[in-house]
Design a protein around this nucleic acid. Sequence first.
DNA 1: GTAAAGTCTCACGCCGGTGTGAGAGTCAAG
DNA 2: CTTGACTCTCACACCGGCGTGAGACTTTAC
Lengths: 144, 144
Amino acid sequence: MRIGELSRRTRIPIRMLRYYEERGLLTPQRTPSGYRLYQESDVGQAALVSSLVRAGLPTRLIMPLLDDLRPKPPAADEPGDRDELIALFAAELARLDRQVACLSLSRDAVRQHLRRLRAAREPGCARSRTGSDSGAGRAVSGPG
Amino acid sequence: MRIGELSRRTRIPIRMLRYYEERGLLTPQRTPSGYRLYQESDVGQAALVSSLVRAGLPTRLIMPLLDDLRPKPPAADEPGDRDELIALFAAELARLDRQVACLSLSRDAVRQHLRRLRAAREPGCARSRTGSDSGAGRAVSGPG
DNA sequence: GTAAAGTCTCACGCCGGTGTGAGAGTCAAG
DNA sequence: CTTGACTCTCACACCGGCGTGAGACTTTAC
C-alpha cells in the first residue's frame, strides 16, 4: 500500500510516517517512480512506533527495541563496541526505570486531581450526564 | 535559601529552577536586590515539579496539579472551565496510562536486550561479578 | 488529453525543555 | 577598597516531535 492508505489505517499523519522512515523505524520499498510502498506488516509496526514515540521514547531507542522485539536471528552485530553498547543500554535502562516511576507518580496525581475536580463539580445541582468520557485507546492494534 | 543551594540540594540545574518559576510552578520571594529566596518546602516542590516534567507532563498541567496537592482550601477557582479542565485532565490521564504501559514495555525490552548483550559477551569465560548496577532512584525526596 | 487526487522532496517554522554565554549587579571575605 | 563567588536578566541556539506550504512529478478517472 502507499503512504496515504497506511496513514488512514493507522491514523498517523503522513508527515510522521515519513519522519519515522527518516529515523530508520520504517523502511518501505519504493516504486520505480519513488512512491513508498508499505507492506501489511508495516501497519502494526507503524502503530507500535507511534505508540512508543508518544510514550516519550526517543526514536534512537525505538530502533534497537524493534530489532529486539522482532523474530530476528541473534545475528552478528559488530562485536567490539559491545561493552560500550552495554554501558549505553544500562544507562538507558536506569533512565527508563526512573521515568516509569515518575510517570506512575504523575498519573496517580492526575487521577487524584480528576477525582477532586469531578467531585467538586456536582455538590448538589444534579446535572444529568455531563459528558465526561476520555476517548482513549485504540492506538496500537495488531495488523489483524 | 538562594537558588544555588536549592539547585545543589535538588540536583536541578539553576536554569531549570528559573524556568519553573517562569512557568509559575515555583514562586520564590525576592530579596530587595532581586535574589530569589526559596523556602524549605520548595525543595520538595521543585523535586516534584522536576519529576513531573521529566515524566512528560506539560507544565501547564503541572500547575493545577500542584494547587491540588497542596493543603489549600477548596477555594473558588473560576467555575466554568471546570468541564474543560476535566476533559483535559481525563485526556491527560489516558495519555499517561498509555505512556506508562509503553514505557514499561520498552523498559522490559531494553532489559531483555541488555541481558542478551551481556550473555553474548561471555560465552564461557567465567568473570565473577560483572558490575551490573544502575544507579536509579533518589530523585524525589521529601524535604525532611 | 485533461483534471484531480496522490505523492515526492525540501525547507521553514512552532513549541517545549535545556544549554550557554554576555554583561551587570550583589555579597562575603580579606 | 578589591576580589571572587554568586546571582540577576536577556537572549541566542539546539534538539526532538510536529505542522505546513511550495513546486514538481505520478497515478487515476473521465
